[in-house]
Design a protein around this nucleic acid. Structure first.
Lengths: 227, 227
DNA sequence: AGCCTCCCTTGATGTAGGTCATTTGCCCGC
DNA sequence: GCGGGCAAATGACCTACATCAAGGGAGGCT
């Protein structure tokens, strides 16, 4: 089984430990729509995405779905497992068929205790997630849906955008419902706004994929957020 | 100078290191409204609140203020300093006159490298912050202001509420503007909602402080958020 | 082919809440 | 005491957006 992203992750360990560590990560496979863990469950494992896309979400009692984030290959999730008696603070579900690696809290702790640089690497990952969460708060809180969408699209482009003759292609299928879930709005509103963005030549589509045609204009949409 | 909260923090270090570590933390003093660091600055130090209240906020280009969190004695902020070349992802300002301790990234790294349990403690702090940030997302995204306020008030009560004959007192002065900043709304809207909550006997005031009179009712306001 | 499911689109309508404007009350220093 | 500044309260207005509803296109199934 391929382990490209796992290897990369293990590179942050000192060399002597890598082989041993490799054995602590177990491969898993999930189908589309299959849940990996559920919000508020006891957090037993930390996960790494090898292939596919994982959605981190929260479902409200009234059925509304909030998408916290999408995780792509190389991404880590299930931070609750980083300390004793942690719980997951969101649910994780495969958005596309996915392959992941997971390591138990015990094994992870053992690794951390043997390599402080690795501990620092984990720290960096978590702090980066924290920064992202704050960034999202900033984009979502009290802003117009228009801006929130611009914000999300720009983030996606930075994360997984690939340059192309007609613009920056967002390399994952993304429905209006997904976007609505990310920004806390509705399909219909997103549809209207996206239509407008397309009409204005700012966004476009390439098959099933979204394309940012005019990043500058998109940035202008929310530049007063940027301080 | 008193160092109650610093001592507690240092208790997570192995005993042999404490005395030495104590010297790495420098005391600071800030007046009301004085900024401790600014959003996007290079993160040089990690901070610990000894006394007073610190506000973590972000100012948008259009002047709107988003309050990410309040930090009370024992609280840690400035996570950007937890890894090399980090930057602060929010501004920190003293909301009341405050005393803090700070440690530089270099010194901190030295400590972490000598005590893995301490590293795990830091990790726990950061993950807890991450969970909080997600919790906030969940409360804010696409919810009515009413619910967002209930959410914030309940969080405050859990954090710094003290029981009293007339209810749960939130032990810090909190203006409508503060609340508006926390939930991404406006003073006026908050005022209207708070008036209603007071009329309904759910909230009340005790001098300058807010009191939760009926926590059950407040919980009911947002129980469909709770899944 | 026909059907079903999923997604997008567009319209009509009601309302939460942002914005502007005014008034009142409180605290502080003089 | 009086005046100035700051927070709260309340009203009027208007727009962004959630909600309900209907229709259309694309892809996959039998």
């Amino acid at each position: 089984m391929e382990d490209h992203h796992l290897s990369e992750f293990l590179n942050h360990l000192e060399e002597g430990l890598r082989k041993e560590a490799r054995e602590l990560f177990k491969p898993e496979r999930y189908d589309r729509e299959q849940y990996i863990f559920i919000d508020q469950e006891e957090a037993t494992h930390l996960y790494l995405v090898e292939e596919g896309t994982v959605e981190a979400n929260i479902v409200h009692g009234d059925g509304k779905l909030l998408i916290l984030d999408f995780l792509y290959p190389g991404g880590v999730f299930g931070e609750g497992a980083l300390y004793e008696d942690g719980i997951y603070s969101y649910s994780a579900v495969a958005k596309e068929p996915a392959r992941t690696w997971r390591i138990s809290w015990d094994d992870l702790q053992w690794l951390v205790s043997r390599d402080q640089l690795f501990a620092l690497h984990l720290m960096r990952i978590v702090v980066a997630k924290l920064d992202q969460a704050y960034y999202k708060d900033r984009c979502i809180a009290g802003e117009k849906v228009e801006k929130r969408i611009a914000c999300v699209l720009l983030k996606m482009v930075d994360e997984i955008g690939i340059s192309d003759k007609c613009g920056l292609v967002i390399d994952t299928p993304l429905t209006n419902r997904d976007i609505a879930g990310l920004v806390g709005s509705t399909e219909e509103t997103v549809s209207r706004i996206m239509s407008r963005l397309k009409k204005e030549g700012i966004m476009g589509t390439e098959g099933k994929l979204l394309v940012v045609r005019d990043k500058k204009a998109l940035l202008a949409y929310f530049d007063d957020i940027q301080a």
